[in-house]
């Protein structure tokens, strides 16, 4: 690697770090809840959520590009989550955790997401705390905003 390239890489790294540092100062835990929350902070928190929702929405609707970008293969049949769950209908995140008959075990929403990926979609299971799982979860919960919590509902 040339000195120039090394410099550019270092510069890019430093830039990324400074952006993260700014975000951390803005929304980070150091001052969390100790000062009145600002409109700017609220927007940053909301943007963080909506970015996950957007990614989850794309994954849920079978977008190949985002799946590739996030390194996941959610389907091998052309089926996407949204084909059985338009607008996340019938995913019922507000009923988890519960005993899930298909798995014959007490399950979380993440367990169910993986079950659907593996069974109907014949895709590859994703890590429970992976970025893709968080995004899917964010989209499903966000889309069900207003549904009343009824954990355990069959």
């Amino acid at each position: 690697m040339t000195a120039r390239k090394r410099f550019l890489v270092a510069l890019a790294g430093a830039s990324a770090l400074s952006v993260l540092a700014t975000v951390a100062v803005l929304v980070g835990p150091a001052s969390a809840h100790k000062d009145p929350v600002t409109a700017q902070q609220l927007k940053a928190y909301q943007d963080a959520l909506m970015e996950e929702v957007r990614k989850g929405d794309l994954l849920f609707h079978g977008d190949d590009a985002i799946a590739k970008q996030m390194g996941v293969k959610l389907t091998a049949t052309g089926m996407a989550c949204a084909m059985c769950h338009p607008m996340t209908a019938d995913t019922h995140p507000h009923t988890f955790p519960k005993f899930q008959a298909q798995m014959a075990k007490f399950a979380t929403l993440r367990d169910m997401i993986n079950w659907c990926i593996e069974k109907p979609n014949q895709g590859e299971k994703i890590e429970s705390d992976s970025d893709a799982m968080k995004a899917l979860e964010a989209y499903i919960y966000w889309s069900n905003t207003g549904s009343v919590l009824i954990p355990g509902r069959y």
Binding site: D57, H61, M87, H92, T145, G146, S147, V148
Partner: peptide, 14 residues
């Protein structure tokens, strides 16, 4: 199939 009440939002990413 209509057992569980749900309130849903339309998708956004398209």
């Amino acid at each position: 199939f209509a057992n569980i009440p749900e309130i849903l939002r339309p998708r956004i990413a398209d």
